[in-house]
Simulated assay, not measured.
Amino acid sequence: MTEKFSSLTVLMVSDLARSQTFYREVLGFNVNDWWTERGGLHGVALKLFQAADPADVKPNKSPAGGGYAVDVQVYTNTWAQLDALYEEFTSKGAVISVEPVIYADGGPWKEFVIEDPDGYHFAFGGTDGK
């Protein structure tokens, strides 16, 4: 018997309606009362929970040795897809925490990072699989 599993990332948010609007209008996710997802991004799905207290919202902190924090990593198949996402998100007013950068190690690997209204960081990246 083959079992099929799936997962989603749970984020505590300070204002559920604001977060739902952001994920729908800025990032182009399909949003309903239970979760938010965007097809074509390797099954990226999120569960947004209203925090009882804003202090319960805790994005990852930047590493002590430098660099930047990432709460969700999203993989793309090609750099063309990555560049299209960057253009889409910036045209809709997304806050870019890290502009597109290419790292020689890992492929090479290219990514950029956006920040949501609660300070969660989403790294979009991949190797150029064209």
Rank of each mutant, 00 (worst) to 15 (best):
K4F: 14
F5P: 01
F5Y: 14
V10Y: 02
L11I: 11
L11N: 07
M12K: 14
M12A: 13
V13E: 07
V13K: 06
D15T: 08
D15G: 02
L16Q: 06
L16C: 09
A17R: 15
A17K: 15
R18K: 15
S19W: 12
T21I: 08
T21A: 15
Y23P: 01
R24H: 10
L27N: 08
G28L: 08
F29A: 00
F29L: 03
N30F: 11
N30W: 04
N32I: 04
W34A: 07
E37W: 02
E37L: 07
G39P: 00
G40H: 14
L41Q: 05
L41H: 08
H42Y: 14
H42L: 09
G43D: 10
V44E: 07
A45D: 00
L46Y: 02
L46P: 05
K47E: 09
F49E: 13
F49H: 14
Q50Y: 05
Q50L: 03
Q50S: 03
A52F: 02
A52I: 02
A52T: 06
D53Q: 01
A55V: 05
D56W: 09
V57N: 06
V57L: 01
K61C: 00
K61S: 00
A64D: 11
G66Y: 10
G66R: 14
G67S: 10
G67P: 09
Y68K: 12
Y68C: 03
V70H: 02
D71E: 08
D71T: 01
D71G: 02
Q73C: 05
Q73K: 05
V74S: 07
T76V: 15
T78F: 11
T78Y: 13
W79C: 06
D83T: 04
A84P: 09
L85D: 10
Y86M: 12
E87A: 11
E88Q: 14
T90H: 01
S91P: 12
K92F: 10
K92I: 06
K92H: 13
K92P: 08
V95I: 15
I96Y: 04
I96E: 10
V98G: 06
E99S: 14
V101N: 07
V101W: 01
Y103P: 00
Y103M: 09
A104Q: 14
G106C: 02
G107I: 02
K110A: 09
F112T: 06
F112C: 11
I114G: 02
I114W: 04
D116S: 13
P117K: 11
P117W: 04
Y120H: 08
Y120C: 08
F122H: 13
A123N: 15
F124S: 05
K130D: 08
